[in-house]
Design a protein around this nucleic acid. Structure first.
Lengths: 173, 173
DNA sequence: TAGCAGTGGTTACAATTGAAACCAATTTTA
DNA sequence: TAAAATTGGTTTCAATTGTAACCACTGCTA
């Protein structure tokens, strides 16, 4: 990751013409906006699909998805893995326990921690949702060429890193 | 600033059971999930930036962004342009009017319609936010090569179309 | 021109979300 | 070894959001 233009402070002079009169913002080409619209469309469609079949919210499904792959995590581990909020995890977990989709057991070594796992029922549901999720993804990806899929992967990685920098270092000013 | 728990603790997660169950969902590679994380990180960072400076929510800012480019729109026109919800527009508009950022005048030809425009104050704010927004976008885009920027543009277009199809045709099943 | 379906926009209410306060267990420090 | 600080997790409350009902107006139809 290069650190060149990390902080374009006001000590730099920009092209006077740009500075005098800002161009109008073309929202329909503005990346943050497009990302938001795209992400919402995709997430909502998929959420509809599995909330109709199983009784799962998006955060709840995410928790299951992680636990399906990484057993024996605590809520804090889930926060780390998913970048979701602590409270969202707590609520998702409590719903999932109520539905008997996951189990919670005390960690005797540290009695604040609670170790989470898919229950048998949860595993069954998981096994049925995964193909569904993959079908959606395949369908989405199917609109791209193999080459584009590779490009997208690396582009997302780069954008993610940059956005992450914002959060860590504070905002641009 | 949005919390992004960068807890690089040395906690070791148990091995992914990937080897045992090759069909598990790899959430961290799952496009809908990645899009959502990316979009949230980007939007939150930017929203923080301008809500700190001006008193604007994301929907309110979007309304201003559109009105800055296309004067004399009604709320319904805004719905069409932004793909935002009717109610969200109505609320954003009422906040913006309260702040004197936009004006509302009756359309005498159709007395249900109300024609919206940036006020002088709103125009001033707009002119100050646009460069800020562009700075964020430039910074994001700066992490990509010119080639990648072109690729991203066309990829987003394709994905958007596909996701749109889902909404129109009903879900995959 | 009365009746009725559609449109523009707001309101009301319920569900979701986030921030901050909080409790309990653990670790640190002096 | 007793505070003090930290960590894991939940609860509370307020703000945001989505859905549905709603009012006012228009325009079509008969």
């Amino acid at each position: 990751m290069t650190t060149d233009n990390s902080n374009s402070s006001s000590t730099e002079f920009s092209d006077p013409i740009d500075a005098v009169r800002p161009d109008d913002l073309r929202l329909e080409k503005f990346l943050p906006y497009r990302l938001s619209v795209l992400s919402n469309r995709v997430s909502n469609a998929i959420a509809d699909a599995y909330s109709a079949r199983f009784d799962l919210t998006i955060p709840a499904w995410r928790v299951m998805a992680i636990l399906g792959r990484f057993p024996n995590l605590s809520a804090a581990d889930l926060v780390e893995q998913t970048a979701m909020d602590k409270v969202a995890i707590s609520r998702a977990v409590s719903i999932l326990i109520k539905n008997d989709y996951i189990t919670r057991s005390e960690d005797l070594a540290d009695r604040r921690r609670q170790v989470l796992n898919l229950s048998q029922l949860g595993r069954d549901v998981y096994d049925r949702i995964v193909p569904l999720a993959q079908q959606y993804e395949n369908d989405l990806m199917g609109s791209l060429s193999a080459e584009e899929r590779g490009q997208l992967d690396s582009i997302i990685e780069k954008l993610m890193t940059r956005a992450q920098d914002w959060a860590n270092r504070g905002l641009i000013d």
